[in-house]
Structure formats: C-alpha cells, structure tokens
Design a protein around this nucleic acid. Structure first.
Length: 701
RNA sequence: GCCAGCGUAGCUCAGCGGUAGAGCAGUGCUUUCGUAAAGCACAGGUCAUGGGUUCAAAUCCCAUCGCUGGCUCCA
C-alpha cells in the first residue's frame, strides 16, 4: 500500500486512487464535470464532508445531489447561513445564536436592536435571493479555539463566544453543553453534535460565505446557488439555549428548497393541513366553540357532543371487558385534601380555586367594595369572614377521588387488583399563550383509571394497561405513535429509592410489551414516573395522549393513607397505577378531527345518514324511513326544506355526512332509497332493509 | 409568563382620521324540482372592552381580555 496515495471507493463499487490529501472537489470533478455540477454535498466514510476537505486516508465517497433527501437537511442548514448573512447586512448590531435545520425548514435565533416583523420579510427575502444568485461557495476554515474566540470577539458575537468556550476552549468534559450547529429539539438527524466533534478533534470550524463568517460545524452545500428557493416564513420569540432565564432572542424561521416545485408542494401541503385544522372544522361542522368568558374550555354543540359520547361509549366498552369498574367523584374538594396529596406543593399554579363571596349590597349605585387579601390573593366581600369561607379547589386530577373510593371500606388482598375508572373532568390553569383549540385546553375529561394492586401485580397490570391502550389506538388507525418513559422531576414526592423502583418496574413492563421507548429524564409526574403515548396530528406536531404512571406515594401513610389487609392479616399500602387512554377526550377528539379531516367513520359520525326528499310530497315517506333507521340505532336526519335536491346534497356533502338517502316518488312506491356515499357519489337504489344491513356493519368499531 | 401579529354582521373578509360595506348564512314570499348552490325582497354591527389624543376615531396612542404563530410548560 503506497503511502502517498489514497484509495477512494465510490457508490458504484469502483475504487479510484488519488494523491494523498486530494481535495474532495477535485475528486468529484475527476469523476465527471456533470456530477460536480449536480452535486450538492458529499459524504466521506458515511459522514458529511466539505468540497474543500483533503482526503488523507482510504475512504468511501458518496456524492449527494438535489434528489437525496439527506441533502435537503444540509441545504436548509446552509439556508440558515444565508438568512444570517442577509439579516446581518440589513440590520445593525445583530448577534447570532444558533441556526439549525429543522424538520420542515430552518431557523436562526438572533438578537437585534430591531424587532423584526412581517414587514421586514420582503427585504430579507430579497437580500437572500441576491446572496443565492451571487453563487457564493461555503468555505470551511479550521481554526484553534483561540483563533475562533478572536474572531467572535472582533465581530461582537457574544453568543458565539459563549458557544466556543463551551466547545473547545475548555477541556470541556461536561456533557450536553452547547451544540453549535443545531439547537435543541427538532434537529435533523444527520446533523451531529458539534461539541463532541470539537472536543474529539480539538478543532473549531468557521464557514465563510462571501464576506460573512459564522461559527459552524457544517456541513454545507457546495454553493449558495444550489438553494432554489429560500424565504422567511415567520418570526417568533425564543431564549438563548432554550432557557427562560437566559436572554430573549428572536427566532427567524424559514424554508428552503432545491426547486420551485418542491416549494410549491410544501405550501400546498400546508394549505391542506390548514383545511384539516380542527378549529376550522369545529366551526364548519358545528362541533364546538369557545367563548372569551371561558378561555380554553370548549362548548360542545350537539354534533360535537355526539362524537364525544361515542368515544366515551367505546372506551367504556373496552374497559368493562378488561375488568374495570366505573365511578363518579366530585369536581370540587377541600384545599386541605390537595395539601395532603402533595398537589398544593407541586401543582398549585395549575389549579383553579373557589372563593366564597357573601351577598354584595348596592350602595350609591355601586357594588359594595370588596376587600382584597393581598397575601392569599382572595377577594372577599367585607362581611364575609375567613371562617365562613372553607376553601375549596377544583380538581386538576382524579386520583384523590379514586383513592377515596378505594379507602371507603376495608379491602382484602384477594380483591386486588381493583381497577377504578372514571370519565373525570379536570380543570388545569395554563400559562397564557399555550392554549390551542381542543389540543390544549383548561377543562377536559380524562378517561382516567387508577389500578390498586399488590407489588407482585405491577408488571402484569402495567402490561395490561399498555395493551388496552394499543388496542384502543388501533381502532382509529393510528400508526405514528411513540412512547416515552419519563423519570423523577425536580418537584416530586417520595424517596429516591421508591422512584428508582417505580422507574425500573415501568421499564420492565415496556420490555415485556416489547415497545421501543425514548427516555425522558426529569419529566415524570410529581408522584411517580410515567409512560406516555404520543400521537402526531396532521401537520406533524406530536401530542401526548395516553399515559401509565406508577405511584407508591399517594396511597401511603404520609398522604391519603389507605391500605388493604394482606394474607398475613396485616395492613399494606397498595400500589397505585394511574392510567389514561385517550388522555384528554378533548385532545383526542381534536386529533381525530384532523386525522379524519372531518370525515369520520360511520360509528363516530354525528349524523350517520340524512334523508333528502326530492319533493315535499314524499316528506311523509322520508319520515317513515327515518323512523325505521332510528329504531335500529342509526343517527339520521331528514332535510324537509323546500330546496332543490342538488342543494340538499351539496350541504350534506359539506357537512361530510357518510350516507345521503335521496327519496322521490319512485322510492316511496318501492320502499327503497337511492344511496349516495359522501365523497363517492351515487351508489344506486337499495331497499331500506338492504341499506340497513349495509350501514349496520359500520355502526360499531 | 415571553416575542411578534390579530380582534369590523353567525362565517369569510373589505374599509385604516370625515355619518359602517360585500359574499355566504338568516328571515319572508315565489318555485315542487332526481345526485355539489333556484329567484326576489328584507333584516342584521355601541367596529373585543376601558381609557386617551383630535373639531372628528373602526381607523392614531395606552391598558385589559381573547385569538393566531412561536418560545417555555403540559393531557
């Protein structure tokens, strides 16, 4: 093996020899000028590299073109640099944070004296277009930490200074420090951790794009000209390193594509997603609405309530079969109770409280002054005494109620496990700005259950709960589900040992159920670790729905103090498993609306069939058919208005009613219906009985 | 809670210092009609709320509430 040559193997299996240190660019050009022109970025030995890199050892070279999905992630990151360059040129004193590629585009967090708004987008977009047109190569410069610091200081990039210090400046062995090329969260998988790279190689890289220099691990596409389309889509707030206590930054978000067509496809997709938005469909299909007077608390209309109840019915059926019993417990319980459960210390800011006001008398046309108790924040009428006002709190969780049901009588080990379920409405205060239609509300119903069992029963009960949740989800065709295991948070009750035991138990159960899961450290409930099930909505956001949580604390003597009598004739504290399947019925319904784009399967559809008489003469027949369907449990309406059938059909289609039954004089004579299926059109004539036989197959899950 | 934007008729939106507009929905009348919108007429708003600037405010300013997109947080 020659020492001044390197062997480079290519995608087609061929191997070529070049002088050691040959530049990637020259190799690609040598393979073919056409390939070079089509190339976006390259991978050496499976890792992204730059065109300017020298090749020092035998390796494999893969050239990626516009068609490679991986190249798109690189492109987006390069677009972030173009954005940064544009913003730095347009506005004074811009300090840059991180500018990663994201799942659907890219963003750059910046601090600027100017608050950016939509009015600035045109200017930024135009400048970016100029930069793209200028065909500027992305040039990688490897420097020492000191050199990088000198650059950052000279250019006043305070966040870059911080980033460099975290990177290579120190002998940095703290894990999880700054990742320079990508921010937290939704990073593209192909972008690795700069920090680790930098520590491993003790090198820091800067990228030059024309006269613009940015600290960055790379990789980048060959030149700005490869960016077919780039535009700013929105600007929002963020924090340096994602920490609320750090400096506020402006997050400028954008999208970038290789071609105009990709761009148009993307925006069309967004349009489609917008059409499925459950808030839009909630209005169009008359399912629910919100009021300023009850923020984040939905008012379900008859049609929405129908779907809602269908969901409850289904959950109820599943649970009955699985050995759950159903209870109903109070919405409002005393503050003392919430102190005992630990909610007072751990969940206070999310709770709604009651206050008692005595009658307010009218004096001089004004309501009598009320007194504000500054310490508690309570407002009381002057003549209401503290003793009068036994303070109550609206429940944010159902668990204490269920513990109370469990503890109301002597329990024997032979009764266990006891699975207590409830469609329990809870209220939780949310910080302003986080509410989102049905997906994030302040009042919601959980299909909640608490399983009281012995330590030996934990695994089988947790596995059973997981299986039930999976079965439920499969009925709706949800495939993109991911599972997380969350461990002890900062604010918590119970000892470290108890937590460890509970976390292990959940992990074992997940393994038994052979489920892949992501570990989510520090994200457990305050009383115990949890398994969460997450479902994606139509525009890719992931929402937590079902959950299984293990709790050794709340039933214990320090808290609500319940027990069962064991075989040893002594009292024991039961293990409590918290479990919800839909999670929040409201949220699940919101996801379903988007999932089905409002076109519910028949068993969920608020109106399953609507009968459309062609002339008012046959209204009597329409009513007869309706009665027959109603008797068989079909949710049916009759459109008796004096409108043309075309109009009735159009409106029924817009309301996404699965079956439209057109009836005229012919049908009235024959005892038949002309069946039209939503979205599919005319299905021909059936006798009423044949139609019933058809729809009945779809009435149940 | 933070950043940016928004709040005009039931819905979608126009008006952006000079006496509130359209389409759809609604109501009334006419039309009885075969698979995605019949015709005519009428009615509907303290322009989110409260202050301020101005001869004059839906329009400009401030505050509050709510909504939207993010950040942060969560079912």
């Amino acid at each position: 093996m020659s020492s001044d040559k390197v062997k480079i193997s290519l995608k087609d299996g061929s191997v070529k020899e070049y002088p050691r240190g040959v530049k990637v660019e020259d190799v690609v050009r040598d393979i073919g000028e056409g390939l070079y022109k089509a190339s976006a970025c390259v991978k050496l030995g499976g890792k992204f590299a730059d065109f300017g890199s020298g090749i020092e050892k035998d390796t494999q070279l893969v050239v990626l073109t516009k068609k490679d999905p991986e190249a798109l992630a690189v492109l987006r990151h390069s677009a972030a640099h173009v954005l940064a360059k544009a913003v730095c040129e347009l506005f004074p004193n811009v300090r840059l944070g991180f500018g990663p590629a994201r799942e659907d585009g890219f963003h750059y967090d910046i601090v600027s004296d100017k608050a950016l708004s939509q009015d600035d987008f045109d200017a930024i977009n135009n400048r970016m277009a100029e930069i793209v047109k200028a065909d500027l190569p992305f040039v990688r410069k490897v420097v020492s930490a000191d050199q990088a610091l000198a650059w950052a200081r000279a250019s006043g990039q305070k966040y870059k200074i911080e980033a460099i210090e975290k990177l290579g400046g120190a002998d940095g062995d703290e894990p999880g420090s700054a990742d320079v090329s990508s921010a937290r969260g939704t990073d593209v998988p192909s972008v690795d951790n700069h920090a680790q790279d930098a520590r491993a190689t003790n090198e820091i890289s800067l990228y030059e794009t024309g006269d613009f220099v940015d600290l960055c691990r790379g990789p980048h596409v060959r030149t700005t000209a490869l960016i077919g389309c780039v535009e700013v889509t929105q600007v929002s707030g963020s924090y340096w390193l994602g920490d609320e206590d750090n400096d506020k930054m402006q997050r400028v978000r954008g999208v970038a594509f290789f071609s105009k067509k990709d761009r148009d496809d993307y925006f069309n997709m967004l349009e489609e997603a917008k059409k499925r938005d459950h808030r839009r469909l909630g209005v169009d299909l008359d399912l629910f609405h919100f009021e300023d007077d009850a923020p984040g608390m939905p008012f379900f209309h008859p049609k929405g309530a129908t779907i809602y109840n269908a969901l409850l019915d289904y959950s109820r059926r599943l649970q009955r079969k699985a050995g759950y019993v159903e209870v109903k417990t109070p919405l409002v319980l005393s503050e003392e109770l919430w102190k005992r459960t630990g909610h007072w210390d751990n969940y206070l800011e999310n709770m709604f409280f009651s206050r008692r006001l005595t009658a307010v008398t009218i004096k001089d046309g004004d309501a009598m002054a009320v007194v504000r108790d500054e310490e508690t924040g309570y407002t009381l009428a002057k003549d209401a005494s503290e003793e009068d006002d036994r303070r109550m709190a609206v429940k944010p969780m159902n668990c204490p109620g269920h513990v109370k049901v469990f503890g109301d009588k002597r329990r024997s080990y032979s009764e266990l496990p006891i699975r207590i379920s409830e469609f329990g409405m809870v209220h939780r205060r949310e910080r302003a700005g986080v509410r989102h239609g049905l997906l994030r509300v302040q009042a919601f119903t959980q299909d909640d259950a608490h399983i009281f069992c012995t330590p030996e029963q934990i695994e089988s009960e947790v596995v059973g709960a997981i299986k039930l949740i999976q079965k439920l989800y499969s009925s709706f065709g949800f495939e993109d589900i991911h599972v997380e295991l969350s461990t002890k948070p900062e604010k918590s009750i119970g000892s470290a040992e108890v937590w460890e035991r509970a976390e292990n138990a959940l992990a074992v159960a997940l393994k038994t159920a052979s489920l892949d899961f992501k570990l989510n450290p520090g994200d457990g409930a305050f009383y115990g670790p949890k398994i969460d099930f997450h479902i994606r909505d139509s525009i890719g956001r992931s929402w937590q729905c079902g959950t299984v949580q293990l709790d050794f604390s709340m039933p214990g003597p320090d808290r609500l103090d319940v027990s069962y009598i064991g075989a040893d004739d002594k009292p024991h504290v039961p293990v409590m498993i918290h479990r919800a399947m839909y999670g929040s019925v409201e949220r699940f319904l919101g996801i379903l609306i988007e999932h089905y784009a409002g076109e519910f399967p028949v068993w969920l559809a608020p109106v399953q069939a609507t009968i459309l008489p062609i002339v008012s003469k046959v209204n009597y027949y329409a009513q007869q058919v309706a009665e027959k369907l109603l008797d068989r449990g079909v949710r049916v309406t009759v459109d008796e208005r004096g409108e043309k059938v075309q109009r009735k059909i159009r409106e029924a289609e817009l309301q996404k009613v699965p079956y439209m039954l057109v009836v005229g004089e012919k049908e009235a004579q024959l005892g038949s219906v002309s069946v039209r299926r939503h979205g599919e059109g005319d299905q021909g004539v059936l006798s009423v009985d044949d139609f019933l036989a058809q729809i009945e197959k779809e009435l149940r899950v």
